[in-house]
Design a protein around this nucleic acid. Structure first.
Lengths: 187, 187
DNA sequence: TTTTTAATTGACTAATCAGTCAACAAAAGT
DNA sequence: ACTTTTGTTGACTGATTAGTCAATTAAAAA
């Protein structure tokens, strides 16, 4: 019954349904079932709410991506787990993922660039990718370009599977999608 | 001195700079150097302005993509021209492209889905891709998934080149990026 | 030329919204 | 028990905004 969490969940839903511009704070507090004033107790301004939510969800997403990779030994199987962890989260959290896409392509993406925890996560990924390049399982090109491409490809899988949910269990499609993904990366 | 065009240009700029929610129609007409009322002469509502602009720019972008491909003979060189036409437009029109990204990931993306001209363009691309699949120069997988992936990869190139403008003339990088792109597509 | 139609203005308004605040309630600290 | 801090409410407000409209000008048609 954490009201801050209720507000963030309500905000995620409404921002995705209506967009930032058509979602008044009054609608958020109403959807969350709390008073109008309490929103400004937890978040100084509406923009603060948006950036806090953005950072929260980005952290949640990036934390999932590396789940269980230390249980695997081969580099390629690790890359594959990063790949499937990523799109699985997107499929299991479609509203949260849609919010992240919306925020990533909005003016709010600027406000997250300086956030220390996000920067740290970015660096961590960069180092992991660089390791795979050094081990010659990923082709040698700018790691930031690689990360951006990888995220873009994973996003297109999530969009396609969200539109065609039956494909989630279509092993042939998943294998083929993985094949294309790794063909992009391999040296 | 077409006022409708002036309004659309001003709107593109301001929406990218401030976002939909923080761009009042008064700011758009001011930026365009016209009266406040005329905006509602050309566009019934602010939402109409946004969707009209979205459709206009999507058409402009998609029209460029196929430029000059009939001057080429081999399928692979055609795919490469589609690829470079795409990211060149994004680099030459960064604000327009950023607006398209923003709109594509916002609630307004719904309002474009039923637009006949956009649907027609989508079908045309689908048929072209299907032709390449039939000719065995592109791997056989759902064409809508392929189109989404291709657009995603091209977007990541545009983002990376916009962030690192010097790379535009770095022939080694461009070649390498093309190599990865076609590795993704080829059978 | 005269009439009709379309473009353009900017002051105006009704509605909406982000954020405040005084009051109260609950918890935590002493 | 009592004091302080923290959480919570909802009515309120000043500012802003989308959209209107009567009036004016320009263009096109008759």
């Amino acid at each position: 019954m954490d009201k801050r969490e209720q507000l963030l969940a309500a905000a995620t839903k409404l921002f995705v349904e209506r967009g930032f511009h058509a979602t008044p704070t009054s609608a958020i507090s109403k959807e969350a079932g709390v008073s109008a004033g309490i929103l400004f107790h937890y978040f100084k301004t509406k923009d603060d709410l948006i950036t806090d939510l953005y950072v929260d969800l980005k952290k949640e997403y990036t934390n999932v991506i590396l789940k269980d990779i230390d249980k695997l030994t081969s580099d390629v199987s690790k890359i594959r787990l990063i790949w499937s962890n990523s799109w699985n989260w997107g499929l299991e959290n479609p509203i949260k993922f849609q919010f992240l896409l919306q925020a990533d392509n909005s003016i709010y993406s600027e406000s997250i660039k300086n956030h220390p925890e996000i920067i740290a996560k970015y660096h961590l990924f960069g180092e992991i990718i660089q390791g795979y390049i050094d081990n010659k399982v990923i082709t040698n090109i700018d790691i930031y370009f690689l990360m951006q491409s990888m995220f873009a490809l994973i996003t297109s899988i999530i969009k396609h599977l969200t539109l065609n949910p039956a494909l989630k269990n279509d092993q042939a499609f998943i294998e083929k999608a993985w094949e294309l993904f790794y063909n992009y990366l391999k040296p």
